[in-house]
């Protein structure tokens, strides 16, 4: 039996989703044994592809995670886009334009991956614009100085790399493949950010102070990016069992701290945490308690820039309406002309 892929794996299908994967030959199986076979398949480090059988909760979890990730990339263009017109040199400006364009690209790779699970692009965009969908809390912080652009590249993209490198091995094929592309590009982002910080840290005392102040602003929000502590992250266990997630929030946060401390030392800048110190016994850096009330508040919409980010996104979308309408009208007209030409021939 042959099937049109679009009807099966894309948003247009309703209930016609394939019920059986290659691991499950017997269609009369109970849901329990389908679940078990699915888990066995995952445990064997095999990938799930769009039209394979999967538990409904696995599909929903992935759609939520991938679309939130996509929304974060799209909103993430704003804090840095803020500085494109005021970049201090042409070299910095072309790099920043390329980086912001990459963020748009990452959003689009991810929307494309979420669509393979049956989500519709229009619905995802609508959920972002209406405020129904969440995005990473980090992008609700402002970028008052050029040094913030360096700090974002170094810390925010650095934290993103820590999170995303393990996602290249996530169990859902299209998500993993999107993350491979994203990670290659993030590496450029982090290096361009660190170079900005280096130039400032080695510059005049005023420039060094700018770099230190940006670091002070972004350090804690960067650590919050990894999400709540393991004992307050109820969905983590299931995501790890399904191998969507490979490491816990706290493990990834620790990895990021260990990685970043020597980088800050090289810059001659101080991480703003009096409790930060090397723990010989653990072989890791200890760090101070994090303000989880702030994290929750920003997530709920009470960060410094939530309203500004949403208003800007909505305005941009509305401003583009005439372009989309013109493109649709042009496509319709071409199609009609082509049909007429075929008829005449």
């Amino acid at each position: 039996m042959y099937l049109r892929i679009a009807r099966l794996s894309r948003g247009r299908m309703t209930r016609g989703r394939p019920k059986v994967s290659q691991t499950v030959a017997d269609t009369a199986e109970t849901p329990v044994s389908l679940d078990r076979r699915f888990q066995d398949w995952i445990d064997a480090e095999r990938k799930i592809e769009p039209r394979d059988w999967m538990p409904e909760a696995y599909r929903r979890t992935l759609i939520r995670q991938i679309s939130q990730h996509a929304h974060s990339e799209i909103i993430g263009m704003q804090p840095e886009g803020n500085w494109i017109t005021r970049a201090p040199s042409l070299r910095r400006k072309v790099a920043l334009i390329a980086k912001v364009q990459d963020e748009a690209g990452h959003g689009l790779y991810l929307y494309s991956a979420a669509e393979t699970l049956g989500a519709s692009r229009d619905d995802m965009v609508a959920d972002l614009l209406s405020g129904k969908a969440k995005y990473s809390s980090i992008f609700n912080y402002p970028t008052p100085s050029w040094a913030d652009i360096g700090a974002i590249g170094w810390l925010v993209d650095g934290a993103a790399i820590c999170n995303q490198v393990p996602l290249c091995r996530t169990s859902y094929g299209p998500y993993a493949r999107a993350m491979v592309r994203v990670c290659k590009e993030e590496s450029f982002h982090q290096r361009q950010g660190y170079e900005i910080m280096m130039a400032l840290a080695q510059g005049t005392p005023e420039q060094k102070q700018m770099a230190q102040e940006a670091l002070n602003r972004w350090w804690i929000p960067s650590l919050l990016m990894f999400g709540p502590p393991d004992d307050q992250s109820p969905n983590s266990a299931q995501s790890m069992k399904w191998k969507i997630k490979r490491h816990s929030n706290d493990d990834l946060r620790q990895r990021f701290v260990d990685m970043t401390v020597p980088q800050a030392e090289f810059l001659g800048l101080t991480l703003p945490d009096p409790d930060l110190k090397w723990n010989e016994e653990r072989g890791h850096y200890d760090f101070g308690a994090l303000p989880w009330d702030e994290f929750q508040a920003v997530l709920k919409g009470h960060g410094p820039c939530n309203r500004q980010r949403m208003a800007f996104r909505n305005k941009t979308f509305a401003d583009g309406a005439w372009v989309r309408e013109a493109a649709s009208a042009y496509a319709e007209k071409q199609k009609a002309r082509q049909a007429a030409a075929v008829k005449a021939a």
Binding site: Y2, R4, I5, L8, P18
Partner: peptide, 14 residues
Amino acid sequence: PASAIVASDPADKD
């Protein structure tokens, strides 16, 4: 066009 792609059914894999 994604709608033009015809694919084998996963159920027929075996």
